[in-house]
Design a protein around this nucleic acid. Structure first.
Lengths: 150, 150
DNA sequence: GCTGAAAGACGGACGTC
DNA sequence: GACGTCCGTCTTTCAGC
């Protein structure tokens, strides 16, 4: 993982569909070594994959909220079954376990306020081990998932 | 935006480097119409772009925190200059303006606790208009940026 | 770094439902 | 109007040297 590898990662985070030819030109390398580096980055797991970035509003998901979760207990089984269950809810785009209180932060997408309310009552509130939920609406995404810095 | 378009978006969110041939096979369409749909989805902005997903630890970024920001004032200039300044900090991966209090949530990456402390004191605390910061460490990413649901 | 064979991208034309 | 099946050419990939 030298400076050249980092340049490659930076370029591919900005455009994941760069051809090797283009990528090589941007990082000022010729095609073969660039191709080898890319293969190694993919095999080592430094590049986990490639994703299309989709506009949520194109799918009618214009509503986003944060949900803070406090579990009733902190034993291993409660944590494991909560995490498994939360990962199975498609509208939960992101879930992080935190130090301190609350235990989890979820980032949730929904079509509108009504859909969110249903999701909240019927799915999130029923996740195993949940003691308390607390949610906040997102007004605006100021910075959306920026590429990692060097 | 019909069911076929949604299938295409779903596939490309799972693998953004699918060839048209592969994509067409997965959504059970022949290559030409699949190609046309993809072009239209890109032109309409439903697909914003493509990104490589990079493992943060490959870049030595093993530390992640949430930072809640409360501004001192809520006037338009304060908000605008804060948002501009926060977008210029590379370690801020995500920033959302919230309803209620606090005003913003930032998701921040750093190499370790020391690096985070420096970032916190020297950059985040000095952002224009900030009255108060409050941060929480991320223990684990349970769900990391899942594709959007249908 | 170069080469060559195989695969894919991309646009067009045309017939069908 | 959208799909499917040809077609052509150009570009890209990727292994071997």
């Amino acid at each position: 993982m030298d400076a050249m590898d980092r340049k490659i990662l930076t370029e591919l985070q900005m455009d994941g569909r760069l051809t090797i030819t283009e990528l090589a030109a941007r990082v000022k390398l010729s095609v073969s070594p660039c191709h080898r580096r890319l293969r190694d980055l993919e095999r080592s797991g430094a590049i986990r994959g490639y994703r299309a970035v989709v506009d949520p509003s194109a799918l009618g998901l214009d509503f986003e909220a944060l949900v803070f979760v406090t579990l009733g207990w902190e034993d291993r089984d409660t944590v494991a079954s909560f995490e498994e269950a939360v990962a199975a809810v498609p509208h939960v785009l992101q879930a992080q376990r935190l130090f301190g209180d609350p235990d989890y932060l979820l980032r949730v997408a929904a079509a509108d306020l009504t859909a969110f309310q249903q999701l909240y009552d019927q799915q999130l509130a029923r996740l195993p081990g949940v003691q308390r939920l607390n949610s906040t609406l997102v007004m605006k995404n100021v910075v959306a998932n920026r590429p990692l810095p060097d």
